[in-house]
Design a protein around this nucleic acid. Sequence first.
DNA 1: CTGAAAGCGCTTACAG
DNA 2: CTGAAAGCGCTTACAG
Lengths: 327, 327
Amino acid sequence: MNTIKDVAKKAGVSITTVSRVLNNNNYISDMTRKKVLDAMKELDYYPHQIARALSKKQTFIIGVILPDSSNPFFAQLLKNIEQVAQCKNYKVLLCNSLNDKEKELSYIKMLKENRVDGIIMGSHVLNMEAYKNITEPIIAFERYINNSIPYVTSDNYTGGQLATNHLIERGCKNLLHISGPLDLSIDANRRADAFKLTCIDNEIDYYIVEYQDLNLNFEYFYKFIETNIDKYLDKIDGVFCSNDILAYALYVYCKNKNINVPDTLKIVGYDNSQITQMLKTPRLTTIAQPIDLIGKILCENLIRLIEKKGDAYNQQLSVTFIKGETT
Amino acid sequence: MNTIKDVAKKAGVSITTVSRVLNNNNYISDMTRKKVLDAMKELDYYPHQIARALSKKQTFIIGVILPDSSNPFFAQLLKNIEQVAQCKNYKVLLCNSLNDKEKELSYIKMLKENRVDGIIMGSHVLNMEAYKNITEPIIAFERYINNSIPYVTSDNYTGGQLATNHLIERGCKNLLHISGPLDLSIDANRRADAFKLTCIDNEIDYYIVEYQDLNLNFEYFYKFIETNIDKYLDKIDGVFCSNDILAYALYVYCKNKNINVPDTLKIVGYDNSQITQMLKTPRLTTIAQPIDLIGKILCENLIRLIEKKGDAYNQQLSVTFIKGETT
DNA sequence: CTGAAAGCGCTTACAG
DNA sequence: CTGAAAGCGCTTACAG
């Protein structure tokens, strides 16, 4: 492939001048610029961004670490991140941690070695220690890691309240919340806090069951329901699920067991990703996170950090209650 | 961040020696190696892969261009590509073309400028001309572009046959196929060929309607059905849809219009992505593409091309008929 | 087994 | 407005 040298030779100028045209620097005579641009076109020249990155110490690459980019929620988040990045001339390097500690760590190492300009962290299996030596701009989704890492989340507490209050208003007396792991400082866990407090306030009996954060797909959730949730089903009349795939799996399970939803059991989900929106049989009652907006803000804030155009601050986006047919 | 120079100084050796340790070159005394490794650890050294890429002329980056990484099919494909890449020490740069010509072109330019080692092309709005000056290893999904670009696809002709024959066996007499744009040389269009020939062979009346390849989501398909498909519904008793989201949209449309599926109208979809597998109300009758395998093979074959470990050849993977509740 | 030097393809003071 | 030279952080013949 042709280099700046080839262009310089063809245009009869120095490589410095070519570089100036490339960077649109001022102080180039129109004639010289034209000569250089012509030479570039003629040689089908592609500026070597890797070389440029080395000398400018900026790669314009953003690393995005997610548990699983094929999960509908993260797929939608990723797409929005990529679109914003693309608009601002950044590229996205994709990392699927599969919620595996080793993988998450090795991806961080990889991103550092590749001198990405910044990192969006959506996978959270590492403890805070691991973040001590990340010096590059970084922004987290849904998790407080430490004071120097801003995070973007939706208003999980309100989400939990909306879901729980709705179940109570619909007449539920015995509630169950199925949650992700509660031991990490994930903001999503405030949904469980809200659930608990709302139940207490309303003198409602409740249970909370945690699933493990491994494979967030239908199959896994269905099996989880069989082995860990089935035993609660005769004691409860309402369930608040921490995501919609789980909620749908529960709906299907009930259908198979001839438990009438919503008459006997009411189900509220969480997320309202594109896939949930597509589901019409039944439409799920759920709490909608503004996924597109979260992706957009994650990326915009990271780029602001990278370009030092403003301070990092945490951001909490509002959620919406969506009435479906499962309550 | 520390460089090879810092490590060399700390270890009391030359940078050449550090580089040798880094690359695990032979002929280093154990003592020297240990000194260097210790220095690296002490300095928390991260080898600068961008600098290495410049001198080795290899980035270990693969560019993946897709129409929309949030579409369930492509999300699953992407995830599998990334996982294979990661195993083989390659990184994935994600590009969402949104089936826009300009975007597709500018992503190609970007990938060339960043000297990616290879490209996986899953978006197909550009004509063949545009591929003339792509000199890097490239592999396409589902499209014949030219003889030097191998492609991976599933056996679309057989898929179309399986779907159509099934509808006929179930007693359908008037069939409709809803297809993507038929003007490009996309292998998926062989589904329409198979549909047509199978209908003719069986003396079945048929229609074919094309949708535009813009936004492959439920909303779009539902509206498309309202405006372009509704008028066929009283003339047909079976539909072969070119993807499952479309098939589900049609199912929902029929439900809303009180058209009984499968009694009055039978529906067959295509793809069987994770999302389709999750859908149980109803389970769709569909043709399963081996999405995970396609992703794997796309990536493996591209890497084989990059590393010149074998010839490029086209690959066609077999599909499976899945009986659901919509036929 | 080890090191000095040139080179990968750019950018950027510095000088003119 | 333009160019020569040093530098970004590595690798790789070449020499010893």
